[in-house]
Amino acid sequence: MSVALDARLGQPWKKPPFVKSPALRWTLIIGSILYLILALNSIEVNWARVYRGLDRGWQFFVAFTNPDFTSRANDIRLGLTESAVMTLASTVVGIGVSIPIGLGAARNISVLPVYLTCRAIIAVSRALNEIVVAILLVAIFGFGPMAGFLTLSFATIGFLSKLLAEEIEDMDKVQAEAVRATGGTWLQRYVFGIHPQVVPRLIGLSMYRLDINFRESAVLGIVGAGGIGATLNTAFDRYEFDTAAAILLVIIGAVMVLEYLSGIIRAKVQ
């Protein structure tokens, strides 16, 4: 029996703590508890109001089991078409604009001024919430799907360009070098060296973004930027929960179908 063992026998054992320094550990623990207390206290829950609301919640739940697709079928159809149209057009335009910006934002193939400009565009697009952009664009372009279309296009640019740029930066540089060694022009280099590696990934990401754009298009109507969100907002305002439930089910169904399709397409190209 070794000395080290003797020293440890009979001693309790504790799992070594995740944060090694005790001072930091206790600061974190006490800080989190303090924050939780403060945060929970700052939330005022009007239980009487909640209690009254439960009845409405129940109505809404019942509405889900008995959704009303018919009485506003026309509005739903128009809203859904508008959402679909906005989604498709903005995804296509978004991809079109994303490709040059993505190329420009890839450090390994771009020059510094172009790189910085493209990165700045991406940063702004990613930082601004779609709804905020939509509000501003509605103020500028007026109500309707044009504002929604522009919003989604702008959001798509930030999303796709960034991932595309990262993809290009990560890709095998040797392959691009090989094409350069054969003496190709810039365009040839792109078409033969970068394009074949990045395209499957780009198609996958675009399908994913199509999916996101549809979901977003469903809310843009709340701020007046077109799509099924406007129909939904109206239904809620009139307390027509059965119609609202129908619209929500339509949205869920559409998202599921889109997700399924995009899954198939992504599996095919990769």
Partner: peptide, 22 residues
């Protein structure tokens, strides 16, 4: 829960729970 945007959930919950942080 994933398909429906948080703004729509908020719209619905404001009707049920009343406006506010909760």
């Amino acid at each position: 829960t994933r398909s429906i945007n948080s703004l729509i959930w908020a719209l619905l919950l404001v009707k049920i729970l009343g406006p506010g942080i909760f």
